[in-house]
Design a binder for these strands. Structure first.
Length: 551
DNA sequence: GCCGTTTTCGGCCCGACTGTTTTCAGTCG
């Protein structure tokens, strides 16, 4: 079965092999195409069907040809042939931190080493001693990296919701301990990607050394990887890598742009700068040696003739061209959210928990709360909240903060399956249902506030699955909920949903701890999808319950 | 291999850090 992620994987494989073969620019070209394919909200076969493959950034004649071949046969001959030329283990050596294409190639060609296992054997036999370019330190470094790699080093990307509290704690530690004036988390965390590979922290301070000392001593930090005059890299206890960079205030905006990325976005604005006779780096926008911008991000973009681009959109998907035409539409923000359509009470909730939740809602200035009282699953309707609490909830609701009951309905695991199989939407529609609860989608008027929630689509890039669920939401007249669940596809889902006219619902995290990722991360995902306030159901001042229903 | 309202050829981001070099190569982000 062909799929977008598999196609991207093949191109990344080609890139690795070309790297080892010493090609200069082709590897990056194939990787660029792979990244573009990963960020598609549409199935490749559908794009090909329209004859539109060339519209994918980074896809030209040669890659279009290979995509067609892949879609027709599931294979790419060029990749198969490359794999015959280069042993798989040589490409795998590229996965070892600190080992790049040049070194991997030298090991292979000069020493006949064809993979990490053989490299370790060679190290044990002392075969690297005396080889030009490999001193004592380098050999020790390689050995430790190979061993970590062989032990299954934790190089996997972390879901952003898990990185969120860690990032908050590090920022807090730096602010309190190092007297840092300004601390920001940049990188893919700031762009709101579903997963992060590392964290990039930027600080302004007069005392870089002190900031590094404080940072290294934080309890989350396991070891210092490298430390220079402006940059420190550490490894956290949980295996996450964190880069800390000290920048001067006059360059903070430029550094923030630079380290927020994405790489493709940076490349695009740099080449634009070049056309204008300017140069962009992390210190500013430069004309010759003169810095013409750098203090704020707005300055930097303005100096390039661009409107400021929200970090969540910096993926080289047309945002630079749009920013050249004029200001971008204002994306949904935290202040736009007037209510929450999906609030859970704990399973051991009592009247006090209900009161605390309502107090939290009022404190946030929310006008309404939709509290989950039933979950609709395979057996029809399951109650999640006892009748006594439902009565308490109704009575406690007032004019400042209205409450109403909502049901949950989504691609949850099939509870009857021991392996937790996911069921396609059709299965839910066709299922025998007892229809015994208060909410009976899709005929009930209140079905309009049904949310198709975010569980169950774990495979990154499963755009077909996403499309099926969005179609399902449309049939129900439901909004699509975006949030930092276990799933990793939410911004793809949300983008596809809003492009097809569906509305989005955003959880606010009301009633959760202040460090909870729910609200902030949901918002980032929605912004990443390009959501405007008008496209978000709970940005409406009134709750969208029956009576308010549109025809 | 891709890309182009100044290009269909000749470019392709750029600086920090490390280690092994005595002026630079490789890797990384």
């Amino acid at each position: 079965m062909v799929s977008n992620p598999k196609a991207a994987e093949i191109f990344r494989g080609i890139a690795d092999l070309l790297d080892v073969m010493g090609e200069r620019f082709k590897p990056e070209a194939y990787r660029r195409a792979a990244r573009s394919i990963d960020s598609l909200t549409e199935d490749l076969a559908a794009v090909a069907g329209r004859g539109d493959l060339r519209s994918i950034p980074g896809v030209g004649d040669a890659i279009e040809e290979k995509l067609r071949e892949y879609l027709a046969s599931g294979r790419v001959d060029y990749y198969d042939r490359l794999q015959k030329d280069v042993p798989a283990g040589v490409a795998e050596m590229l996965r070892i931190p600190g080992l790049g294409p040049k070194t991997a190639r030298r090991f292979w060609v000069e020493l006949g080493i064809e993979g990490p296992a053989e490299l370790l054997t060679a190290l044990d036999a002392g075969r690297l001693v005396g080889v030009k370019g490999f001193g004592e330190k380098k050999i020790a470094q390689i050995r430790s990296a190979v061993e970590a790699h062989r032990a299954g080093g934790s190089s996997a990307r972390l879901p952003i919701a898990e990185a969120y509290p860690i990032a908050l704690a590090l920022v807090r530690g730096l602010r309190e301990g190092a007297g840092a004036e300004r601390v920001e988390v940049a990188g893919s965390f700031r762009r709101g990607r579903e997963t992060v590979g590392d964290l990039d922290l930027l600080v302004t301070t007069e005392e870089a050394e002190r900031a590094f000392d404080v940072f290294s001593a934080l309890p989350q930090v396991k070891e210092v990887r490298l430390r220079g005059g402006t940059k420190e890299t550490v490894l956290l206890q949980n295996g996450l890598q964190v880069d800390l960079r000290v920048v001067e205030p006059a360059a903070f905006g430029a550094a923030l742009v630079y380290f927020t990325g994405s790489k493709d976005h940076n490349v695009q604005i740099r080449s634009l700068a070049k056309d204008l006779g300017l140069r962009v780096n992390e210190y500013g926008v430069l004309r010759g040696e003169e810095r013409v911008a750098g203090r704020t991000e707005e300055d930097v973009y303005q100096a390039l003739g661009l409107a400021w681009v929200p970090p969540e959109l910096r993926e080289a998907r047309g945002e630079v061209e749009a920013a050249a035409r004029g200001p971008l539409p204002t994306l949904v923000g935290a202040d736009d959210l007037r209510g929450d359509l999906h609030v859970h009470l704990p399973s051991n909730a009592d009247p006090d928990s209900v009161d605390r939740l309502l107090a939290a809602g009022r404190e946030r200035g929310l006008a309404y709360l939709g509290v989950v009282v039933v979950t609709v699953d395979r057996d029809g309707v399951r109650s999640a909240l006892p009748d006594s609490l439902r009565t308490h909830l109704r009575n406690a609701s007032g004019p400042q903060l209205r409450t109403f009951e909502v049901g949950e309905f989504g691609p949850a695991e099939d509870p009857s399956s021991p392996t937790g199989d996911r069921r396609p939407p059709e299965w839910w529609v066709a299922r025998p249902t007892k229809r015994s609860g208060p909410l009976q989608p899709p005929s009930d008027a209140r079905g309009r506030v049904f949310l198709v929630a975010h569980r169950g689509l774990r495979d990154l890039g499963d755009v077909r699955g996403v499309a099926a669920w969005n179609d399902f939401a449309r049939k129900l007249g439901a909004a699509v909920e975006v949030g930092p669940g276990e799933d990793r596809l939410d911004s793809t889902w949300a983008r596809q949903a809003r492009e097809s006219g569906l509305r989005i619902s955003l959880p606010t995290g009301v009633g959760e701890s202040p460090d909870s990722p729910t609200g902030p991360i949901a918002l980032r995902f929605a912004r990443r999808a390009g959501a405007l306030p008008s496209e978000v159901l709970n940005a409406e001042p009134q709750p969208p319950i029956s009576g308010a229903a549109k025809p």
